[in-house]
């Protein structure tokens, strides 16, 4: 077998001070202007509404909204109020945080097909009221399970996707 080069570091070498390490921390703050289509979508959350857009050419009703149709490559200005209900397209039961630390109670990210939009048009959100353990959640949720948005109280909404606290299974 060929021999390749490379020096694998062990925890021992690192902790023993045999390897020199330099550190740097980056602080990066950004703000993004939401643009015309996204602004209207986010603003709708304040009123407890999910807005979509409709392309007059391919006739798809899309969510999240966009200012142009990426298929027909033309502008869109037709808005459609969607339901705050839908069905689970897919979901996960996640015990890992972004920094790889672990969670005792899992999060349930889900892709949710929104009623009133074209088939398969979904958004990313999280499920709630679906159990706290793997077994409970697996028993409660399926692909296709009907769900409904649970909104924050009106006074605490701020025009953000998090104005929907989570989706809950219904029926």
């Amino acid at each position: 077998m060929k021999e390749f080069r490379g020096t694998s570091l062990t925890d021992l070498a690192l902790s023993g001070g045999g390897v020199l390490v330099t550190s740097w921390a980056v602080k990066a703050d950004y703000h993004w202007d939401a643009g015309a289509a996204m602004s209207r979508y986010l603003d709708g959350f304040r009123d407890g509404k999910i807005w979509g857009v409709r392309c007059p050419e391919c006739r798809r009703t899309m969510v999240p909204p966009r200012g142009f149709c990426e298929l027909c490559f033309r502008p869109i200005d037709q808005w459609v109020e969607l339901q705050d209900t839908g069905r689970i397209n897919t979901f996960s039961i996640s015990y890992v945080n972004w920094d790889a630390s672990r969670r005792r109670t899992p999060e349930i990210p889900a892709v949710i097909e929104i009623d009133g939009a074209s088939p398969g048009m979904s958004i990313l959100h999280k499920m709630g009221e679906a159990g706290d353990t793997l077994e409970e959640i697996q028993a409660r949720l399926r692909l296709g399970t009907p769900v409904q948005a649970v909104w924050k109280p009106r006074e605490s909404r701020e025009g953000s996707i998090t104005d929907i606290e989570y989706f809950r299974p219904i029926g």
């Binding site: 950004y30 993004w32 939401a34 996204m38 979508y41 986010l42 999240p64 397209n89 897919t90 979901f91 996960s92 039961i93 996640s94 890992v96 945080n97 972004w98 999060e107 990210p109 889900a110 892709v111 958004i123 990313l124 959100h125 999280k126 692909l143 953000s160 996707i161 998090t162």
Partner: peptide, 22 residues
């Protein structure tokens, strides 16, 4: 997406686990 997804507190594993389940 910084408007519709990041505020949910995302992590990389989600997209794989969601796709795998589908």
């Amino acid at each position: 997406d910084q408007f519709t997804e990041r505020p949910l507190g995302v992590n990389l594993l989600w997209i794989f686990s969601l796709e795998m389940n589908r």
